[in-house]
């Protein structure tokens, strides 16, 4: 029995006979900080959906904590691209973060005092406690992203997956978010879909390039191979986009 949080073997997946992922092999170790980069339509989000158990592979296997993904998805925290929800929704930051603890069925419409305290703590650790009563529409891109990370962290997941967390934030915020992820990486395994090769290469220990096929670059290997050549390192990662 191994302890790798995620193991993917010979995995293939297609949408209505259009192949999206082919022969993917990937092992994610505990406390990895893995970045997935690649062109649009390269299968990044599909791979995430397979890990979350929302989709089933056509071929091959995928295990999360040694189990079928759909059985253990509650142990994964997921931060979606925030363009997927209605930003004008009449909901406040605190309520969004609390919803990270929501159960499928409950007989009360209220959160308990303990749950609220826990949410406040989480807001504090994301440095957005002063925004707790703001409506989501009043948040900046970076604040919104912190809120979503806080929501995902409420269930105390072992793996945190983020889909383009820096897609619509400025460069300062981007640095900020990667710093937060770096902190969280002390205890959590982190998977980030990102377009930003520069940032990714300074924080991630593994960069996966996905364009139907998967090309994995362990950054440590790259660094060992080209110890003093930063531009060569970046170039290898850049090649991913081709």
């Amino acid at each position: 029995m191994n302890n790798n949080p995620i193991e993917i073997r010979e995995l293939s997946f297609s949408y209505e006979s259009i192949p999206v992922l082919e022969e993917i092999n990937l092992v994610i170790r505990k406390q990895d900080f893995m970045a997935i980069i690649g062109p649009n339509g390269g299968g990044k989000t599909t791979l995430i959906k397979l890990i979350l158990g929302e989709l089933e592979p056509d071929k091959g296997t995928i295990t999360v904590f040694g189990e079928k993904p759909s059985k253990v998805s509650h142990r994964i925290g997921y931060v979606p691209q925030f363009s997927t929800f209605n930003k004008q929704y009449p909901i406040r930051v605190m309520e969004v973060v609390l919803s990270g603890m929501l159960k499928k069925f409950s007989l009360t419409p209220f959160y308990s005092h303990e749950e609220k305290l826990q949410a406040l703590e989480m807001l504090e650790s994301m440095k957005i406690q002063h925004l707790k009563d703001n409506q989501v529409s009043k948040l900046s891109g970076g604040q919104m992203q912190r809120m979503l990370i806080a929501r995902a962290m409420m269930s105390n997941p072992e793996i945190l997956i983020l889909d383009e967390p820096t897609a619509s934030v400025d460069i300062v915020m981007e640095q900020d978010i990667f710093e937060i992820l770096h902190q969280l990486n002390q205890t959590k395994t982190i998977i980030v879909i990102s377009h930003d090769v520069a940032f990714v290469s300074s924080y991630a220990n593994k960069v996966v390039c996905l364009n139907r096929n998967l090309d994995i670059h362990d950054l440590k290997d790259v660094e060992v191979k080209y110890p003093n050549d930063k531009s060569k390192q970046t170039q290898i990662i850049h090649n991913c986009h081709l």
Partner: peptide
């Protein structure tokens, strides 16, 4: 609506999240 207020809010606010979290 009273009983399932939070769940109804969750699916109308961010459907994808409720799918991932298996919130029904």
């Amino acid at each position: 609506v009273f009983t399932f207020y939070r769940q109804l809010i969750a699916i109308t606010f961010d459907e994808e999240f409720t799918v991932v979290r298996r919130l029904g």
